[in-house]
Design a protein around this nucleic acid. Sequence first.
DNA 1: CACCATGTTCCTTG
DNA 2: CCAAGGAACATGGT
Length: 297
Amino acid sequence: MPELPEVEILVRHLDPLLRNRVIRSVDVRREKILRPTSPAEFARRATGAKILSVARRAKYLLFALRPPGGKEADLLIGHLGMTGRIYLAPRDRPLPRHAAVVFDLGLHYCVFEDTRYFGRMTFDTAPLAELGPEPLEPGLRAEVLWQGLRRSRQAIKVKLLDQSLLAGIGNIYASESLFVAGIAPCRRADRLKIDEVSILLRAIRKVLREAIAAGSTVPLDFAGAEGRDGLFYYGSSGPGRYEERLRVYDRLGQPCLRCRAPIRRTVQAGRSTYFCPRCQCGLRVRAGSTGNTSRDR
DNA sequence: CACCATGTTCCTTG
DNA sequence: CCAAGGAACATGGT
């Protein structure tokens, strides 16, 4: 579920639930998730600690802890990887197969579940130092972004995934932002003009804010009988599905919402990119027909 | 069976 | 040393 908007929504949901709760004990079921913190150190620093707040930086969750001794604050960080989720669950419910780390909070368990185990729950905060600016930070100027792009010959889509340039955008919102900006994903970063970067930054902010707003309306009753949240891109069903709000991502062959040309897919740096060949690349393609033979969901 | 998947990190190559 | 590309990680869905 993890790009900046999903993490932001999760953080807003978790903060009031976890604030001032004490971690009575920890159950580490997948030590890999703690890397590079050792299980012993993790248990020592987390057990008995009070959660002071839950915040976000890029795609990281920041758990401010106060150790039992009542000493200075400690920082625990979480990353959801590709499939990570965090939610409260009644302690009488059996833990899911891929529960990686479980905090005992008394009435509830706080469960970090991650089927692929790419996520993190660790006291190693070094990765935070590598992060670029927050896209939604009001003080961020297009000029700064432009400076960061001008020395790279990589495609702009690939650069948007570079967390040291701009932090929090992932594969889905990279395609979405470029579509809204009307910029071809294959454009070389160093060939973008300052005005285009300005338009792109505006598009990024619009897309991220929209996603946060939409996600905020989704009920996140993690502790309920359902045990699942509505933030998943895939596997969910019914109206208001997450993917239905996406403009181009995963819409191969479907008509562009702006010009009806069939959406195309390409691969950049090993990741899928979706785009409109006409709106973004200026290609003269027929509108209307699907132009492809693939049948998607 | 084949291919695809929201992310990051490591290794190799140039 | 840097930039860029690819594989690896691990599991599940289609």
